[in-house]
Nucleic acid binder design. Structure first.
Length: 1124
RNA sequence: AGUCUCAUAGCUCAGUUGGUUAGAGCGCUACACUGAUAAUGUAGAGGUCCGCAGUUCAAAUCUGCGUGGGACUACCA
């Protein structure tokens, strides 16, 4: 036996064998080494974090990566694929805290930073082996032996180098920003944590509209603005966080918003007051029916608070007006404020959608507040400490927690007391409960506040134009992510907050003197050691500092140095006669991963050539959630360093949801575990399902039934085709001779057709993969395998394989089918690397020896080492493809007519009739006649001439052409054309034009503007579809009926042979019960039957041993079949 | 809240530059084929192309406004 025959398709089994083969023969390495050094295709692996288990969504991303790397390898590129691990950051730290049952405050007290970081280092690689397993079993080729690790000194120092370069460009500064902060946990929170599910919750807060009284010194300015003469007035400002009111230092208005000065009454004290608020929002706080037309009409009683609009002014006119501090205490007096305070400023974020159009501004507790205050030189007050309580010197608020952070039994919100205080003083206009969504700390369940903190920033805003320009050079898949989500993000870019007050991360390499005058940014390990040497030699350090420095150096000499905290914090440097201490923070992990193009090679300290070869990347792929993550950091760092994009092509894939479109989560129990699914269904089936189901950037609704379908449809069909081939190839001992194949031109039309289709397929797949559209590639292969190869080519060719001898025609059939299978194996191998490999090997192993000897394309032991088969344009014959398509359509139409009349295909019919308009059309049908006749069991085709009068034509407007010409008469004329009688149609055909009148206009229509088709043949069984019309003659003759019986008999005998497990070569003898009808059938078709069923004799017999009852159409009789 | 994205048959998806019977596969029903047989074919049922408005002779397709799902960014008085 030349080709292995299998009991059935077992993908997981195949994959196990292939994996073993790959390992034993180091195929992955070979696939890289065999490609030239100077023709590289650069791929970057976005480092995953191994502190969690990989899920099915990782299979999606990694399948996409693998496809293009494998494809480019086949194209002859050298595709190195260095793996990598993201090892730092908050997720790791939080996990460790959880495991140890500690909080941030305990780090450095209950547990040393050193111990803590050791624990982080262990935890981060906790699931590495599972990740490696997944990578392996899913068939993702990645260099797992030499991955980059972001916690290694070599990696860290590269990152330092990058930071120092950015620093040198003067793009780094230390700033003070408002960040989410959890007083209960005593820690700042990353946006990552804030976006944990369930962080945002609806809470009910006390809201206050407070009255800020205009300073008497500014009342004149106010009167000018509103063109009035009042003695006092109050600004109205709304807040949902009354506890920030004591920290208020400004009121912000919109410069272009119109404000009104409204004379009315304080609802709580009933005193006459004048209020300023956005004109548009008057109706929100006052009832329109209570508006009066003059100030004299104002009157108050218990129920009515009427009001009068004194005047209006633009916000810009209010700028600079001072007001009384709302809640003055000892600790928040004006002299405690650095900068201006208690005045009206303008800001563009002010809206009139809610509140009063005047924004209470507390720069310490709001991002916008901080920004607008800074722009206007307004100082800040921070009346709440890091524990979330008011500082001392705040009167009745002193020492009170702004929210219930301690679960106190009798906790009373200061918000309420502030409201009461303001009400009694006549400084509250409105107090009410308000429900809104507010972020909570996911660990303590307590509300977060926004709090000012120190951080280092990268001034990304100053490279905005380059970032945008470089983004335009990137090929985004899909494009909208690049122009939309990413483009928009760049348009609104903010400075990058680089530092985190945490422990497990790359330390910020900046040392600073106590007086802030001296700053030093270290750019590498050696740089640091040199600085240490200089510092020690300076004589400015204490003995203790020198000892620590020496110890640090000694560790490096001994090869056990560590650039992490806490060791790095013990290093003291000296610059210009001043002692420098390290800025204690670590950097954002996203900076780690964005540095990988350089740091993975320890650039510039080593591998300079390697780096130059591998930068920028040709291709990267990650989830769309990385748009503002890795895609951004790669882009930004690359732009700052070299002013070019870090990657040329990027595929951002969508999410993986469950089959109902819901997010997968352990809680819902709808997760698909790849470690269960892959061994059960096979990685290839899953990979193919993922890719063929929808474009990578669409969300994937993962339905495991779909995987099953893919397995049946594609792999099952291919496997069946393979089995078919081997069944006969083994009998005939067929092995392809690469040096001597039948020239394509000498093969049958059907062979040339499938070869044409095959080359068209190659073209489609190649184009799709070049465009990073793997879905189109997979679907094209699906269609080819199912529709063309299996259901047309093989089905129609079966007879060629049954012949006994090995004729030239049979050989051509083998060669053709073989080529199709082998090409498909290669085309599919990037997506289905296992099955592609299996198919390639099992078909080519028998000829390997010769191929190696002759150095032909099939000399490679693995499909992944082969070279992408070139598209052979000369074999693409689109006319032939169209002809066969017509044959398929015609066959399908005849079959559907048969179906309608309940006539089995085994029953021959005399003729089909096809109306043809001209000789050309007739020739077209004639060219497919034989195929169709065999396919639908019809004896002859009759072509009916246009002028025979046998068929009816119909006309239809050509909308595309006529639309432009006729304009709004289109509809009416289309109707008239559809109603053309035969004479009118004939006129169009004869004269090439016809005149129609519509709405008084006479239009001349030419032939091209009218589509004429045959639609009916009265008196016959007719079907008309897609411009094809045909009729079937279903009248029966005795001959036809007898042949039907003969074919029926053949069918029964074949089934019997199958049931009895006869070999396909066994000869048989048939006896039948003597009966006149049977005699006649056998007389007419005996030899036909004999050939078909390999019967040596067919005889009537009155005495059968084991007769079978058979029903042959109308004939019920008995037969007996015996092996000879 | 902003930005992006998606919405076509029960399900998963196609649908070219707007052009007149809106397609495929799965599933369902029925029938057939079978020297590939744990495969296959044919047919049938199944559509408010998310809604509304507009542009146009003509809209699943273009524009605007909504609704719903999802992602990201943020949380703002």
């Amino acid at each position: 036996m030349i080709y292995k025959e299998y009991k059935g398709l077992n993908l997981p089994e195949i994959e196990k064998d292939v994996l073993q083969f790959w390992e034993q023969n180091v195929i992955f390495q070979q696939s890289i080494d065999s490609r030239p050094d100077d023709k590289s295709f650069v791929f970057y692996e976005g480092p995953p974090s191994a502190n969690g288990l990989p899920g099915i969504h990782h299979v999606v991303g990694r399948t996409i990566k693998d496809i293009f790397c494998r494809y480019k390898t086949l194209q002859g590129f050298r595709v190195e694929r260095k793996g990598g691990w993201d090892t730092h950051g908050l997720p790791v730290e939080l996990k460790v805290e959880q495991e140890l049952g500690i909080t941030k405050e305990d780090i450095g007290t209950k547990i040393s930073i050193e111990e803590y970081n050791v624990k982080c280092r262990e935890t981060v690689m906790q699931f590495k082996s599972q990740w490696d397993d997944l990578t392996k079993i899913m068939g993702f080729w990645l260099d797992l032996e030499h991955p980059y690790m972001t916690f290694e000194n070599g990696y860290i120092e590269s990152v330092w180098y990058i930071i120092s370069e950015i620093y040198k460009k003067n793009l780094m500064y230390k700033g003070y920003t408002i960040q989410p902060y959890s007083p209960a946990a005593g820690t700042g929170l990353s946006t990552h944590e804030l976006n944990q599910p369930g962080s945002y919750r609806d809470v009910t807060d006390t809201t206050i509209v407070a009255c800020f009284e205009v300073e008497s010194c500014c009342i004149d300015k106010l009167n000018v603005a509103f063109n009035t003469k009042l003695e006092n007035a109050h600004f109205l400002a709304w807040t949902t966080t009354p506890w920030t009111l004591p920290s208020n230092t400004a009121l912000t208005v919109g410069a272009k918003i119109e404000y009104a000065l409204v004379a009315s009454f304080n609802p709580y004290t009933k005193a006459r007051q004048n209020f300023i608020l956005a004109k548009e929002l008057i109706s929100k706080w006052f009832k329109p029916e209570q508006e009066v037309q003059s100030i004299e009409e104002l009157a108050v009683d218990e129920k009515t608070f009427n009001y009068f609009v004194v005047g209006t002014a633009l916000g810009s006119a209010l700028k600079g007006i001072m007001y009384h501090q709302l809640l003055p205490f000892e600790a928040n007096s004006a002299d405690k404020i650095e900068g201006k305070s208690f005045q009206v400023i303008t800001g563009d974020f002010v809206t009139t959608t809610d509140g009063t159009g005047i924004v209470h501004t507390a720069p310490s507790f709001g991002v916008d507040d901080r920004k607008v205050a800074k722009e206007n030189g307004i100082g800040s007050l921070t009346m709440v400490d890091l524990e979330g309580k008011f500082i001392q010197g705040m009167g009745f608020l002193s020492g009170r927690y702004v929210k219930d952070y301690r679960d106190e039994k009798d906790y009373k919100s200061p918000d309420v007391d502030i409201a009461i205080e303001l009400k009694t003083k006549g400084l509250a206009f409105n107090v009410q409960k308000y429900v809104h969504s507010y972020p909570h700390c996911w660990r303590t369940d307590k509300p977060v506040i926004y709090y000012p903190m120190d951080s280092w920033f990268i001034r990304t805003t100053s490279v905005k134009d380059q970032l945008i320009a470089n983004n335009k050079k990137i090929n985004w898949k899909p494009e909208s992510t690049g122009t939309g989500r990413f483009g928009q993000w760049l348009e609104n870019i903010q400075d990058w907050n680089l530092t985190r007050s945490r422990f497990w991360g790359i330390p910020l390499p900046i040392w600073k003197s106590k007086n802030n005058e001296e700053l030093c940014c270290i750019g590498g390990q050696q740089d640091l050691l040199t600085h240490i040497g200089n510092a020690n030699a300076s004589g400015l350090l204490s003995a203790e500092e020198v000892v620590e420095n020496e110890k640090f150096k000694a560790d490096f000499s001994a090869g056990k140095g560590d650039l992490h905290k806490p060791f790095i914090d013990r290093v003291t440097l000296v610059q210009n006669g001043q002692v420098l201490k390290r800025e204690e923070d670590v950097i954002d992990v996203w900076f780690d991963s964005g540095s990988m193009p350089y740091a993975q090679w320890n650039y510039p300290f080593s591998n300079q050539d390697k780096f130059k070869q591998a930068y920028p990347a040709d291709f990267i792929a990650e989830g769309v959630d990385q748009t503002r993550g890795w895609f951004y950091t790669l882009h930004t760092i690359s732009t700052i360093l070299y002013d070019q994009p870090a990657y040329k092509n990027v595929v951002s894939n969508g999410l993986v949801l469950d089959k109902n479109g819901e997010k997968m989560s352990k809680r819902k129990g709808n997760v698909i575990n790849p470690f269960d699914a892959i061994p059960k269904y096979g990685a290839d089936a899953i990979r193919w399902y993922i890719i063929s189901n929808s474009a990578p950037w669409e969300n994937l609704k993962f339905d495991i039934n779909g995987v099953d379908e893919v397995k049946r449809k594609l792999f099952g069909t291919l496997y069946n085709t393979y089995s078919f081939f081997t069944l006969y190839a083994n009998i005939d001992q067929f092995v392809l001779d690469e040096m001597n194949v039948t020239p394509i031109r000498e093969r049958t039309e059907l062979d040339r057709w499938i070869i044409s289709k095959l080359n068209t397929l190659k073209k489609e797949v190649q184009e799709a993969l070049e465009n990073y559209e793997p879905t189109d590639a997979a679907r094209a292969i699906d269609t080819f395998v199912d529709r063309n190869l299996s259901n047309w080519y093989v089905r129609l060719c079966r007879r060629r394989f049954w012949k006994n001898d090995v004729s030239a025609d049979k050989r051509a059939a083998y060669e053709t089918l073989y080529e199709c299978l082998m090409t498909v194996a290669q085309l599919m191998s990037p997506i289905a690397p296992f099955f592609g490999e299996w198919l390639y090997q099992t078909l080519s192993n028998p000829l390997r020896e010769n191929a190696v000897k002759n150095n032909t394309p099939l000399r490679h032991i693995s499909v992944h080492l082969t070279t992408w088969a070139p598209i052979e344009e000369e074999y693409i014959d689109l006319n032939l493809e169209r002809r066969v398509e017509l044959a398929q359509d015609v066959s399908s139409m005849i079959l559907s007519l048969r179906k309608k009349e309940q006539i089995k295909v085994r029953q021959p019919l005399q003729k089909a009739m096809i109306p043809v308009l001209n000789e050309q059309e007739k020739m077209l049908y004639q060219s497919i006649e034989d195929i169709v006749k065999a396919e639908v069991n019809v004896k002859e085709f009759e072509y009916v001439d246009e002028n025979s009068g046998l068929f009816v034509k119909s006309a239809k407007a050509n909308f595309k052409l006529l639309g432009k010409k006729l304009g709004k008469d289109m509809a009416a004329i289309a109707k008239k054309i559809a109603e053309f009688d035969q004479n009118q149609i004939n006129q169009v055909e004869r004269e090439g034009k016809i005149n129609i009148e519509e709405g008084g206009v006479n239009y001349e229509l030419v032939k091209a503007e009218i589509e004429i088709s045959t639609s009916d043949m009265p008196g016959f069984l007719v079907v008309s579809e897609n411009g094809i019309t045909l009729a079937l003659d279903i009248s029966m003759t005795e001959d036809l009926l007898d042949e039907g019986v003969a074919r029926e008999l053949i069918n029964k005998v074949q089934n019997y042979r199958k049931d009895q497990n006869f070999n396909v070569t066994d000869r048989i003898k048939i006896n039948y019960a003597p009966e006149s009808n049977m005699d006649r059938v056998i007389k007419k078709f005996g030899s036909f039957i004999s050939t078909e069923v390999l019967a040596n004799e067919i005889e009537p017999s009155a005495s059968m041993q084991k007769p079978l009852d058979v029903e042959l159409n109308e004939i019920n009789t008995k037969i007996e079949i015996s092996k000879l």
